[in-house]
């Protein structure tokens, strides 16, 4: 394989990771504010359908993405309402919505199966596209990729460098303290859960309008669960999450390349890599396994290694707060 081919493969990995990156950013925002939106798998499916159908019927890609964002926001709003107002279990509601979104998309999408439709055109960014290596990988893509890359930076900056981001995080870490300081915790949680959900919805449209154009039953099935795991891998940071999504894409691309030269049975082994990786990575992140490993590392490396490997969820993730 020559270098042009390698660059082309890396470019494909970036494209295929773009919707995952968007979804991971959305979920990270929501979880940082204290709301787990477990509905992501169903929400991605239904918003992928909604985005494709809306763009097909109106001819407008923008309306497609808006429709998808609306579906994602609606799902998140249901999770938020159920947990923040009705005090029900977030995980349970999210799980049911994940199932329901899947069946709804299968039922409603029946007559849109495999129809040719609109897709986001590729657009190369002037100047940037001519940077050696990086240009072809990152800047000869389409708007979805640029949006995803920009979103990572903006989310990171917002979460960790702004006052509003600080309040967001305090709602997820120490809601009682935040509330007593006058932060409207519940309102913030609603806001960021719905915003995060809208981003998940846009990720759905990114699939059906850019990365896997069109619609078919189960079009994105499984990607929502993967995104949820990547959020944990990312330690609830958008930058690390994006790296996780890219690594996941890279293992899949590698598997696709390798399987051409191995017997069919080995296909199974290659397809198992992402799931094995998920277990290993979560083991490392949780710290139970990493702690003894870290203890053996040279003292100078311990701190950076620990901050690289381990991550703890927002302390009040999934817990209600009584504001009355």
């Amino acid at each position: 394989m020559d270098s042009t081919q390698l660059i082309a493969i890396l470019g494909s990995i970036v494209l295929q990771a773009a919707p995952l990156i968007i979804a991971v950013c959305g979920e990270t925002i929501s979880e940082r504010a204290g709301v787990i939106n477990l509905s992501m798998d169903g929400s991605l499916l239904l918003s992928a359908l909604a985005g494709f159908v809306a763009a097909l019927l109106t001819g407008s890609l923008l309306l497609g993405f808006l429709a998808a964002a609306a579906v994602g926001a609606l799902f998140a709003a249901i999770v938020a309402f159920g947990s923040l107002h009705l005090r029900q279990n977030q995980v349970a509601i999210g799980f049911v919505l994940a199932m329901l979104g899947d069946s709804l998309s299968a039922f409603l999408g029946q007559s849109y199966t495999r129809l040719p439709g609109p897709s986001v055109p590729s657009w190369h960014i002037p100047l940037l596209k001519d940077i050696p290596v990086l240009g072809p990988i990152f800047f000869r893509q389409d708007a979805v990729v640029y949006f995803a890359l920009l979103l990572v930076l903006v989310t990171w900056w917002f979460l960790f460098r702004t006052r509003a981001g600080l309040e967001l995080r305090s709602a997820g870490e120490r809601p009682e303290a935040a509330f007593s300081r006058g932060v409207a915790v519940r309102k913030l949680r609603y806001l960021y859960a719905i915003l995060g959900g809208a981003l998940v919805g846009m990720a759905g449209a990114a699939y059906s309008l850019s990365v896997k154009i069109g619609w078919a039953e189960g079009h994105t099935r499984g990607m929502g669960w993967i995104a949820l795991a990547i959020v944990i891998f990312g330690g609830w940071s958008p930058v690390r999450g994006a790296i996780g999504a890219l690594l996941f894409g890279a293992t899949k691309a590698l598997a696709t390349l390798l399987q051409r030269s191995f017997p069919q049975v080995a296909l199974v082994a290659f397809n198992a890599i992402p799931w094995l990786l998920m277990i290993v990575v979560l083991l490392l992140v949780s710290g139970k396994l990493a702690a003894p490993l870290l203890a053996r590392a040279p003292a100078a490396l311990r701190r950076p290694l620990r901050s690289l490997l381990q991550a703890a969820p927002p302390a009040a993730l999934g817990q209600p707060l009584d504001e009355s």
């Binding site: 944990i232 799931w275 083991l283």
Partner: peptide, 15 residues
């Protein structure tokens, strides 16, 4: 291992 049963379970399902 401290892996939440939802994610450990999902990975094991696919495996």
């Amino acid at each position: 291992g401290g892996v939440h049963e939802i994610f450990g379970g999902l990975a094991l399902n696919n495996l």
